[in-house]
């Protein structure tokens, strides 16, 4: 079930360093939300705070609220492992498990959630997820082969299949095309369009055209100076963002005057 996310006054720290400050936004269900901004502005950190992935760095913590469907993600009763099972993630570089076949890669998340499943169920999940990731036709004859044998773009779609196999409430994508060639990028963008009918998608991208092409809402992050915390400058429907932005900094950035 796709869910919406509400973020209220979120500050993110790494130890004493404040990386992101004062973010407020609502990420709509069954829509694509993109974050753009210059390097180091905290957009990836913010994305990772949405499924508590940033906590793998020692000393990371947040202040403020993130709620998915009314449930606070940072409630002390919530297990971060549980959060990551509900909110899936696709990374900058494709990272299929190197020792696993394509088939087992798709099922990796399901195997964590439920130890035993009948072969027929597993087959159904694999086919559905690979079809969902537009990869089925390319790999259906070699499901037993290692995932590392695929091309970069196929590997990334395999990672997307792995993420959607567990039917997450939200799918986070951290620059999913930055390591891919233009053709693979186009394939992933098409896929994002299709996935949005079932999933809430949040994507970080360096590529403003990509944000314009795939997203419904866009958030622009910036930082005042190096060493200062990043902050959300503007959050608007993508169409507004790229035609009549509220903030002059946003206009400067999207028209290529800096960043």
């Amino acid at each position: 079930m796709a869910k919406s996310i509400d973020i209220t006054d979120l500050d993110i720290y790494y130890g004493d360093f404040k990386a992101v400050e004062g973010v407020n936004m609502t990420i709509k269900a069954k829509a694509v939300t993109a974050f753009i901004g210059p390097s180091g502005c905290g957009k990836s950190t913010f994305l990772r705070s949405l499924n508590r992935m940033h906590e793998v760095i020692p000393g990371a913590r947040v202040e403020g609220k993130v709620t998915v469907d009314g449930q606070s993600l940072y409630d002390s009763a919530i297990d971060p492992v549980e959060v990551r099972r509900r909110i899936g993630m696709v990374f900058q570089r494709p990272n299929p498990f190197p020792t696993m076949s394509i088939y087992e890669n798709v099922l990796a998340g399901n195997r964590l959630n439920a130890k035993r499943m009948p072969k027929a169920t597993a087959d159904t999940i694999v086919e559905k997820s690979l079809r969902g990731a537009n990869l089925w036709n390319e790999v259906k004859d070699r499901l037993g082969k290692p995932g590392m044998g695929l091309s970069g773009g196929q590997q990334q779609r395999l990672c997307i299949a792995r993420a959607i196999a567990v039917e997450p409430e939200v799918l986070l994508m951290d620059e999913p095309c930055s390591a891919l060639d233009p053709i693979s990028t186009a394939a992933i963008e098409d896929l994002i369009h299709e996935l949005k009918s079932d999933y809430t998608i949040v994507i970080v991208t360096h590529n403003m055209q990509q944000a314009a092409r795939v997203s419904d809402d866009t958030g622009f992050f910036n930082l005042k100076a190096a060493g200062q915390p990043g902050h959300l400058v503007e959050f608007n429907p993508t169409k507004t963002m790229f035609t009549t932005p509220d903030n002059p900094d946003t206009e400067a950035y999207i028209s290529g005057r800096f960043g």
Binding site: N51, M53, V56, V81, E82, V83, R84, R85, R86, G88, M89, F91, N95, P96, F97, P98, A108, G109, L112, N113, C159, R162, A163, V166
Partner: peptide, 9 residues
């Protein structure tokens, strides 16, 4: 690889 696993919960 570790992040792949962590990201799956």
């Amino acid at each position: 690889n570790e992040e792949a696993a962590i990201g799956l919960g």
